[in-house]
Structures are given as C-alpha cells and as structure tokens.
Write a protein that binds this DNA or RNA. Structure first.
Length: 715
RNA sequence: GCACCUUUAGCUCAGUUGGUUAGAGCGUACGAUUCACAUUCGUAAGGCCGCAGGUUCGAAUCCUGCAAGGUGCACCA
C-alpha cells in the first residue's frame, strides 16, 4: 500500500517542498482569475497593501500575507474568480529616510547630491528591494496574480494620480495656501498632522514683564516678531485695554509698540490670562492671527536658527538662543519668575526632533466634504470595519479632521504637476499637467516655476484600489471594482484606509471595498515591540526556513483576533511544525492501511460508526465554513487543528487499528474509504491556512489535479 | 482634557449571538512508549474570568461605576 521508498516514510521536509510547490502553482496560472474557467460565483478581489520597497519583509508583513492568502485561497476553492493584486510602494518619505540613514552610514549626505542624483540613487535602491519583496512574498506562499502586479511609480498609476489632482483642483477640493505646517529641521520637509507624534515634556515656563502685563511663555526665543498681546474679552483684570489699542513696551531690543487683541480662545485661568503670539511658529497662534488678520514675522528659519528679525541673536540655534534671551531678560529685569510645567510638543515621527511649525505655501486637500461622505458609507453599513470598535475611532478622527497638507519638500516621490509662484511669500499655484502654464504670476507678477515638491506618498496610495485596476476604462476596473476586502494594519486606518474611502468615493463615485479587516501588531514573544536594537526580531523568511512556512502561518493565525496585537514566540511556531508533522503521519498511516486505487470518490459510509463519524466531520466542515465567511480565521484554524490532532489522529486512527486487525471486512472497507475521504476533505479545508504541505500531500493522492483549485467540501 | 482598547491558568491568548463541571498552546509534575509520529500518548496540579453594584431563572459574556495598563486624538501660552 505504501512502498518503502515513499516520501511518507520520511519526515516532512518543508525546505525541499515549498519552492517546488510554489512553482507548480505559479506555472498553473491559477493565481490569475482569468484562468479559473469553472469559477462561477463571480469575482472576489483583494488589493494587496503594497509593502514599502525599502527592506525585507518583517513579521507584520507575514501576518497580512497569511490573512489575505487565506481569504483568497478560500474563495478560490469556493469557486470565485479570486483576484489578489500584488504591488509595492515607493513609500516617499519613509524610503527617503531609510536611504538617508544609509548615506549617513557611508559618511555621505543627501545635501551634497542634486535632487536628480538623489532620486536616481533611491530608485535603484528601491528597485533592488522591490525584487527582494517579491521573492519574500513568494516564499510566504502568497497566491497573488503576478501578471497584474503594480508599483506606485508605474506610469499609469502616476497618470491616475495626476488626473485626480487636476480634477480636485477644478472642483475646489485642492488649494494652494500659505498656512502653518509641521516642519522637520532634520529632514527639511513639511509633514502632515498624521506624521507627527505628540510627546509630553517638562519645560520651564517663563513669566516676563511685557509693558503693563506679565506674560507666560515656554519659548522666549520666539518673542521678537510679536507685537501683539492677547487676552480674553471678558477678563475684568484687563477691561481697561481695548481691542486694537497700542501700548508702549520695553523689550529686549528696546522700545516697541504692542497691539492689544481680544480673543475668547484665551484661558483666563492659565498663567496671567495674557499672552503674546507667534503666528509664524505656533499653530494656535496662527489661528488667532488668521481670525484677526494679523501680520506674522518669521523668527526661525528652515534649519532651526533665528532669523534677522531676532537682531543680534540671528543665526543662533533655538536652544542656545533661549539661553541667551533668558539671561538678557534677567539682566534687563524683565524676567519675573520661571517654573516647571508639563506640556506637549509635536515631534517628527521618524527622528523625534521637535517640529518647528512654520508658514509656507503648500498644497492642501479640503477634507470636510470628503470626510462627510466617508462617514456616511460606514454609518450606512456599506463599508463594514472589522473589528467594529475601529469604526468609532474612524468616526472620531473624521469628525475632527483638518485639511491635509500633501506637499513634501523631498526628492523621492511623485512630482507635483503644478506651476507655482517663485516668490516664496506668494501662495499662487496652478495645476499644470501639460506644461502649458507660462509667464507671470497673476497674483503678484512673480515668475511661474515648476513646483519642486513631491506628493505625500499617501495621496497616491490613497488611490490604490482604483488606480491598480486601471480606472476608468480598463476591463479590470469594470470587473473587479468595488473590491471586496481591504485587509491591513490597524495603525494605518487614518493614513490609508480612510483616505482610500474618501478618494475612492470622490473619484469613482463608489466605495473601494465593502469590508475592512484590520489586524493588530505582531510583537515579540514577551509582548515587546520587535526592533533590531532589541534583537528580538523574527524574520519570517528565516523562520520559514527553520520550521516551514506553514508552521509560521498557522502560528500567526491561530488565536489571533482582529485588531488585537499578538505575541509571536518561537515556541508557538515550533508547535505548528509538529502539527505539520502530525498531518504528514496521519497521511502515512492512512495510505499504509487503505488502498488508494480502490478509493471511491463519492463514498458514503457503510457502518453506523462511520456514518456518525462522517456526519461529525461534516458538521465541523460546516462550522469552519461559517467561521471563514465571517472572518473568524483564528477559530477556523484552531478547530481544524483540534480535529486533526484530537479527533482524527487520537481517536479515529487508534480505533481504526482495531478494525484493520479484525475480521469484519465490511467495516474494514468502510473505514478505509472513510479515511481517504476525510483526508481529502480535511486537506482542502486546511489548504488556505497551510497551503504547502496540503498541496504536497494532495499531489500524492490525486495525480492530475491541483489542490489550489479543488472544490470546497461544503456547499 | 476627550476618545478607544485591554484586564480569564505561571506565560501568551481563545471563549461566535448570555445556557451544564470556563478552554487551547507553551511551561510544570508524574508515568508509559521498539505500535503512523526526528516523537507521541496518558494522568495531574494550576482560575473569586480586574473590583463593586445592577438586569436575568441563569452573566467571563449585557448595563452602571471604579481601578490598573496601553493606544489614539486635541491650538492651553
């Protein structure tokens, strides 16, 4: 029944198997839904969140690959035209930061390179990594359609992004405005509100004499351009001062004139109830200045040094300037007191430096009208977010959304197709796809120049679902859009998912997907964040080689509920390697005791006992199907695990030994058929989770078919 | 400050709409094993299901409050 040289006489060897099996699938063409002729249940589409092509895949990637592959394989087995469209992301700022670190290590600096040189170096770097990413995806078993693979810098993607930009400009949803933005002095670019981290710090609060007032500030070094004192209109302490009144003040640089501004935003309880404002360098102050049409002065430049406005402090770095200013205030008798206080500072999410807010003309997306629609579709249930508590977070963010700065002053990205005024004080800008806009700025008469900036990478990836499918004319767009599931990390709900919904609705008039499945973070076994410096990183490719990719996939999915972080310990992976081993030996036992040549496909049990076992098994398969339809992968996988181990191996096989050594031939035949039948059905059900070993076993059962396109055992 | 999440065995977590004695993996202890198993099998110990109320015939599950840990958002100088 099973010859001595059968592969089942040796332990399962994933390394010798996986690559061969993947090639078998890829050669079959079944990753491409166009080659699934018998699929009669319509399309099922997942657009892959494109990994950043700036390094190897990490454990988090392995999780998304596993989940999306499970969904795709399941739907394929169920008879859908399953499309999983892969891609990679140039990842603008992210990649530029990675590359700058690399340059630093080599003792070079991006500021010694021209933009063009930098761009082409990063392009080479990205393309190399893109090839690595593709190889890693294959090794994880991703059954995605490589013939439709996209890169965020493909010409057709850029074309779509440009068309959207132009359309939004025409529709007054994109404008160029001189507004305060988050500026990173290290990376020399502005950042969106999402690309910042607020940190609580304890700093000094300085109380200073300012004419008849005492003002409190944590940033005395910015108090140069300020010629305004702001107080609450209802504050009785300052009732004698009228809005707009001019008051002489002795200050650092001598006598100045300050203007009184009354604004209800002022908290009468804080400090002295009076403050000066720095519209150029503080977001709150900027808002006040806008309301009252006040003029702001730039005090800190792009490199974080004081400007000419600071007089003798010009050129000093912020920290040093603060020290000197405080000393001089003391000397002049203007410093009343200082005290510790806790406040929040906004830092760059990449380098942790304090971001210096500054006013710059940039391109902004008007978010309110887009956000409204995006809230609506989720409220109405047209888009369902799993887990559902994430919907609350989604609503909360969208309700309080601010306009989105999409200009980045970095080389690596999609150039913004626009002409702007060369005068940095002027905020004129016009979209210009065909290089038609020439001559003078209609606003100030300055020269029109090409905008040197690039798009925030999320502006392009926010269009990923319809851009990858060839909106508006390609047949793929017509066949596969709206897509079905967007499976991605919970922490990019705002960065990406919300923007895809907004931009998808705007551009196509339809939702981009009907289900959002958000997974949590993969942490190290001790719950710590995985990081290179801690040395606790589990590399999916390495671990796959050690224990088998199937074991890794199982470890990632069992017990891992959506939206919750998981701890991935090596022991857990090891446990599922043993599971693969168990399945292998179950097969070995069955094939040693039942003759494959006598197997009848549509077998029905002949003994009461086997009938009962069959119905128990079928009930399990039914449950699994319901779990899968409801995205409960953690339960489906665990149920299968226990069926194979505790029911099939521990009970049924043990019991079969008695039957096979006994004299009841009818029972023997029935059991043999039952076992072969069960093995086949369980292999199909397990295939989405552990595709390699199941296909490898299948190849020994069914010579002329591929498990990947078998028929799901439940109707 | 506002919002959200988490709290169940030594560790990491399940527990699908409330329904018998609360489960898994790993770990621990003891035993067995030339039997499909680069092992496996058996047995055992271990839980006021964060705390306090409430709803219910019945609560780990629903409601209220509290506590601890975590995350997100926010213009208090």
């Amino acid at each position: 029944m099973l010859s001595e040289d059968s592969k089942f006489m040796r332990p399962y060897n994933p390394n010798a198997t996986e690559k061969r099996i993947y090639e078998l699938w890829e050669k079959s063409g079944y990753f491409n839904p166009d080659n699934l002729p018998e699929a009669d249940k319509g399309p099922f589409t997942i657009i892959m969140p494109p990994p950043n092509a700036n390094g190897r895949l990490h454990a988090g990637h392995a999780l998304f690959v596993t989940l999306e592959d499970i969904m795709t394989r399941y739907k394929r087995l169920r008879g859908y035209k399953a499309l999983w469209l892969p891609g990679t992301d140039h990842a603008g700022f992210e990649t530029q930061v990675v590359y700058e670190k690399k340059l630093e290590k080599e003792g070079r600096s991006r500021f010694n390179l021209t933009r063009e040189e930098l761009y082409s170096e990063i392009m080479k770097f990205t393309l190399d990594n893109k090839a690595n990413t593709e190889a890693d995806l294959r090794s994880l078993g991703a059954s995605c359609d490589w013939s439709r693979e996209k890169f965020t810098l493909d010409a057709d993607i850029i074309k779509t992004v440009y068309d959207t930009f132009e359309q939004m400009f025409k529709d007054d949803l994109i404008y160029r405005g001189k507004r305060i933005v988050n500026w990173c002095t290290k990376h020399q670019t502005s950042l969106s509100d999402l690309e910042t981290i607020t940190e609580t710090r304890t700093d000094k609060l300085y109380y200073m004499k300012y004419g008849p007032f005492t003002i409190a500030t944590s940033r005395p070094e910015t108090k140069f351009g300020d010629k305004y004192v702001v107080m609450h209109p209802d504050d009785p302490r300052y009732a004698e001062y009228k809005d707009g009144q001019e008051i002489p003040v002795d200050w650092l640089e001598g006598k100045i004139t300050a203007t009184v501004v009354k604004d209800p935003i002022i908290d009468m309880e804080f400090g002295t109830g009076v403050m000066t404002i720095t519209p150029w360098h503080d977001i709150a102050d900027f808002d006040i200045a806008q309301r009252h049409n006040l003029i702001g002065v730039e005090v800190i430049d792009k490199n974080g040094r004081l400007t000419k406005a600071a007089g003798k402090y010009e050129g000093l770095k912020i920290e040093e300037a603060r020290k000197q200013v405080v000393e001089n205030l003391k000397a002049l008798g203007l410093l009343e007191k200082e005290e510790d206080y806790e406040h929040n500072v906004t830092t760059c999410y990449k380098c942790g430096r304090i971001l210096e807010p500054r006013i710059m003309p940039q391109w902004f997306v008007k978010m309110e009208p887009l956000a409204k629609q995006a809230i609506e579709v989720v409220k109405k249930g047209e888009i369902k977010i799993i887990p559902d508590f994430q919907e609350k977070i989604y609503f909360h963010w969208l309700k309080n959304i601010r306009d989105w700065n999409i200009s980045r002053q970095i080389a690596w990205g999609i150039p913004i197709p626009a002409k702007i005024c060369s005068n940095s004080e002027c905020d004129y800008g016009v979209v210009d796809l065909g290089d038609k806009e020439k001559g003078k700025c209609p606003k100030c008469g300055g020269e029109l120049i090409k905008d040197p900036d690039t798009f925030d990478t999320w502006f392009s990836s926010g269009q990923w679902p319809y851009a990858t499918l060839g909106y508006p004319d390609h047949s793929d767009f017509k066949n596969f859009y709206p897509t079905d599931v967007m499976e991605t990390a919970g922490d990019i709900l705002f960065f990406w998912v919300a923007r895809m919904i907004m931009l998808g609705l705007y551009r196509t008039g339809k939702i981009p997907f009907h289900t959002v499945y958000l997974h949590g973070m993969v942490r190290a076994g001790d719950k710590q964040k995985m990081s290179k410096s801690k040395g606790n990183v589990i590399s999916p490719v390495d671990i796959g080689e050690k224990y088998g990719t199937d074991a890794l996939r199982m470890a990632l999915v069992v017990g891992n509920t959506p939206g919750t972080d998981m701890a991935l310990a090596e022991d857990k992976i090891k446990a599922y390697k043993l599971f693969a081993n168990k399945l292998w030996n179950v097969t070995r036992f069955i094939l040693s005791n039942a003759d494959l040549d006598k197997y009848v496909k549509d077998f029905s049990a002949d003994t009461e006992q086997d009938k009962e076992l069959s119905s128990k098994r079928d009930a399990l398969l039914k449950d699994i199907t319901i779990d899968l339809d409801n995205y409960r992968f953690h339960l489906a996988s665990e149920r299968l695990y226990h069926y194979v181990w505790d029911e099939l191996a521990a009970n049924i096989l043990e019991d079969s030994k008695n039957i096979f050594t006994g004299a009841d031939n009818k029972a023997k035949t029935s059991r043999q058929q039952f076992l072969l039948n069960t093995l086949e059905k369980i292999l199909i059900a397990l295939h989405p989770f552990i595709p390699f070993i199941t296909e490898e076993i299948w190849q020994s059962l069914e010579k002329n078919s591929l498990l990947i396109v078998e028929k799901w055992p439940v109707k």
